[in-house]
Measured scan of single mutants.
Amino acid sequence: NKFNKELGWATWEIFNLPNLNGVQVKAFIDSLRDDPSQSANLLAEAKKLNDAQA
C-alpha cells in the first residue's frame, strides 16, 4: 500500500544521510515505524538535521 512504499523510501533515504549518527538514524526509523503516515515530515526533519550537521 501507499504507506509501505513511502515508509520504505523514507527509511532508505534516512539510512543514506551521511551526517546522521547511528542513534539519530535509529530514532528517525523508530518514529517512521510508529507512524508511517508521517514519513514525509520525518524525512524532511532528518534532512534538516543532516544539513545542520554537515
Results as ranks from 00 to 15, higher is better:
31 S>K: 14
40 A>E: 09
19 N>L: 03
10 A>K: 04
37 S>P: 02
29 I>F: 06
34 D>M: 12
37 S>V: 04
1 N>E: 12
3 F>G: 11
35 D>C: 12
21 N>P: 01
28 F>G: 00
14 I>K: 02
13 E>A: 08
11 T>G: 09
47 K>T: 06
25 V>T: 05
44 A>K: 09
29 I>E: 02
39 S>V: 14
17 L>N: 01
26 K>Q: 10
30 D>I: 14
46 A>H: 01
29 I>W: 04
40 A>R: 12
35 D>T: 07
16 N>P: 01
42 L>C: 05
18 P>A: 08
14 I>H: 01
7 L>V: 10
4 N>A: 11
51 D>N: 07
38 Q>C: 13
16 N>A: 06
5 K>L: 05
38 Q>L: 08
15 F>A: 14
1 N>H: 11
30 D>C: 12
6 E>Q: 04
17 L>C: 06
14 I>P: 02
46 A>S: 02
25 V>S: 03
30 D>N: 08
36 P>M: 05
25 V>R: 11
6 E>R: 04
38 Q>M: 08
16 N>S: 08
52 A>V: 10
33 R>G: 04
49 L>R: 02
33 R>Y: 15
21 N>M: 08
35 D>K: 09
17 L>A: 01
25 V>F: 02
37 S>K: 06
27 A>E: 08
54 A>P: 04
43 L>R: 02
51 D>G: 04
37 S>W: 05
23 V>E: 11
45 E>Y: 06
49 L>I: 08
29 I>S: 02
54 A>W: 06
31 S>M: 13
13 E>M: 09
27 A>Y: 14
47 K>G: 02
18 P>S: 08
26 K>T: 07
43 L>S: 01
54 A>T: 08
27 A>G: 08
51 D>W: 06
28 F>T: 00
48 K>F: 08
5 K>S: 15
7 L>R: 02
5 K>A: 11
15 F>R: 07
15 F>W: 08
49 L>N: 02
22 G>H: 12
21 N>K: 07
13 E>H: 05
3 F>S: 13
39 S>R: 05
24 Q>G: 00
8 G>Q: 14
5 K>T: 14
50 N>G: 02
21 N>G: 05
52 A>S: 09
21 N>I: 07
27 A>V: 07
11 T>V: 15
32 L>I: 11
20 L>N: 00
51 D>I: 09
45 E>N: 04
3 F>D: 12
48 K>C: 13
22 G>C: 15
54 A>L: 08
41 N>K: 13
17 L>D: 01
34 D>R: 11
20 L>D: 00
29 I>K: 01
26 K>S: 06
2 K>H: 13
8 G>S: 15
8 G>K: 14
41 N>A: 13
14 I>F: 05
53 Q>P: 02
34 D>Q: 12
25 V>Y: 03
30 D>R: 10
38 Q>S: 10
39 S>E: 06
1 N>V: 06
44 A>T: 07
38 Q>K: 08
51 D>P: 00
25 V>W: 02
38 Q>G: 05
41 N>V: 12
22 G>N: 15
20 L>H: 00
30 D>P: 01
20 L>Y: 00
40 A>L: 11
44 A>V: 09
53 Q>E: 04
1 N>W: 01
53 Q>C: 13
23 V>F: 13
6 E>G: 06
33 R>N: 12
36 P>H: 02
26 K>W: 08
35 D>Y: 07
5 K>R: 05
27 A>C: 14
25 V>L: 07
26 K>C: 15
49 L>Y: 03
23 V>L: 12
38 Q>R: 13
18 P>G: 06
43 L>Q: 02
37 S>A: 10
4 N>V: 10
38 Q>P: 01
39 S>Q: 07
53 Q>H: 04
45 E>I: 10
4 N>D: 15
17 L>R: 00
7 L>W: 10
53 Q>Y: 06
53 Q>G: 04
35 D>M: 04
13 E>V: 14
19 N>A: 05
46 A>K: 00
43 L>Y: 05
49 L>T: 04
10 A>P: 07
47 K>V: 08
41 N>L: 10
23 V>S: 12
39 S>N: 05
23 V>Q: 14
27 A>P: 00
13 E>N: 03
23 V>I: 11
43 L>C: 03
16 N>K: 06
4 N>F: 12
13 E>D: 04
6 E>M: 11
22 G>W: 14
24 Q>K: 00
47 K>I: 12
50 N>K: 01
16 N>T: 08
44 A>S: 11
35 D>N: 11
44 A>E: 14
23 V>H: 13
26 K>V: 05
4 N>P: 14
6 E>C: 15
41 N>P: 10
49 L>H: 02
